[in-house]
């Protein structure tokens, strides 16, 4: 059975457009007095919540030795296969005879799942709150060991964005236990 759909015939008030305009402006003005939801990035930075998974870092012991022992658990766990490690005999004395000669993470491949952090038996790799690390070339977005250690220095005792000091409890500087 066919249905006959009557098309809507605009009335005089509709054709005036004024009531609709007013209704729209009411919404606009209502929001005018409410709190902003957007921020003025990049002048103003978004502060990610705790547990946010951003740029990686490689932790160090207070003595300066890199915590990573190049066991490649992280690269085995990584679903994006973006961690590339070249191990070598460690130049430091006392236990932990292995360390990464090279440690590269391809940040463009990384999906920031945090599996590397979970897999690491040495608590050496961690994801930080840093999210704005764009660059101009693909090569520049492969972060190397030096870069990752630099991120550690930037984030070890303060939040990268708020610059607020981290409480003692959450800092991870335990010393070498072998």
């Amino acid at each position: 059975m066919a249905t006959i759909v009557k098309s809507y015939e605009p009335t005089f008030w509709d054709k005036l457009y004024l009531p609709a305009l007013m209704r729209g402006l009411i919404v606009t003005f209502r929001h005018f007095f409410r709190k902003n939801v957007t921020i003025q990035y990049p002048d103003q930075k978004h502060i990610p919540p705790e547990g946010y998974r951003g740029l990686h870092r490689l932790n160090k012991y207070p003595e300066g030795r890199i915590k990573c022992v190049a066991c490649e658990m992280c690269s085995a766990a990584c679903p994006a296969d973006c961690i590339h490690i070249i191990p070598g005999p460690s130049p430091w004395d006392g236990g932990k005879e292995r360390y990464p000669v090279r440690f590269d993470i391809d940040l463009l491949r990384c999906i920031f799942c945090g599996f590397c952090e979970m897999a690491c038996p040495e608590e050496a790799i961690e994801l930080t709150e840093i999210y704005d690390f764009s660059d101009y070339t693909r090569d520049d977005l492969v972060i190397d060991k030096e870069g990752l250690l630099e991120v550690y220095d930037l984030t070890k005792d303060q939040n990268y964005y708020t610059k607020k000091n981290l409480s003692k409890a959450s800092s991870v500087n335990t010393s070498i236990d072998t």
């Binding site: 190049a70 066991c71 490649e72 085995a76 191990p87 070598g88 005999p89 005879e97 292995r98």
Partner: peptide, 9 residues
């Protein structure tokens, strides 16, 4: 072979 690689690679 010591500290050269991991066997699963």
């Amino acid at each position: 072979y010591i500290h050269k690689n991991r066997i699963w690679n």
